[in-house]
Amino acid sequence: MTQALDTPRTDAAAPTAPDAPGGGVPLAPATPLWAGLAAVYRAQLSRTRVSRVPLLFVAVFQSVGIMILMRGVVDTGSDSAREAVVAGSSVLVVAFVALNLLAQHFGALRAANALDYYMTLPVRPAAVVLGMAAAYASFTLPGTVATAVIGALMFQLPLANLWALLLVVPLSGAALAGVGAVCGLLAPRQELATLLGQLGMSAALLLGIIPVDRMPWIIELGRDLLPSSYGVDAFIATYGTPDWTAFAANLAVCAGVGVAMLTVATWAFRRSARN
């Protein structure tokens, strides 16, 4: 079914609509993309006060725990091994929240018919999906930074290029939130949405923190298919002598996957809300 994307857009501040009347009643204005996105983002961010803070602690503890575990396993004399563990653990926070929790959230909204709320407001599905994805990606920033700092101290890595996380988190966040949203919106049942989110996070965990040079080729292929790997590689590129070309290239992949997955998620949102 066709839906709102082709409807005329008007200024958010307009009190009444200039649209064509139907028997004397004009249509109220549709909400512009950015206004809708901002409203959804703000509302989602406010939820941190209620339930997200404990989950962020879980995300950080999980990542720090994995780093402690890996310290006893990997060769701490190898730069690439240490970098892979810290970068993988940091991006794992993004995967936990943006992929796993967003998949669960969309699954729960669908199961409760709660998407009706958005579908009966004149807001574009893209604004809802992007607003939620952006909020979930934002939740991850403090946890990712905390993990990266703790990891750098544990594994004697430099802290100088930590600013790179300001790009790595939003872009890998967009890609992973996109995957999470698609899982949550397309899974036929809520339990499957949860399962897919968990599987995605487990994959990000296993494939993200193991150094690439130790992987069999087939596992490496799996790693290449996982969007979080490009976030990990972008972050690894900032260690030692930074390779900014690799940094930019990896982030470009994240951005591309983000655009593609969020587009699919927008389509899935419209589809799931109307059946």
Binding site: V25, L27, A30, A108, N113, M119, T120, L121
Partner: peptide, 15 residues
Amino acid sequence: DVAPRLVAYLGQEAG
């Protein structure tokens, strides 16, 4: 898509 621009809907769920 015209319905949300004319109608306020209160469903049974507040999820």
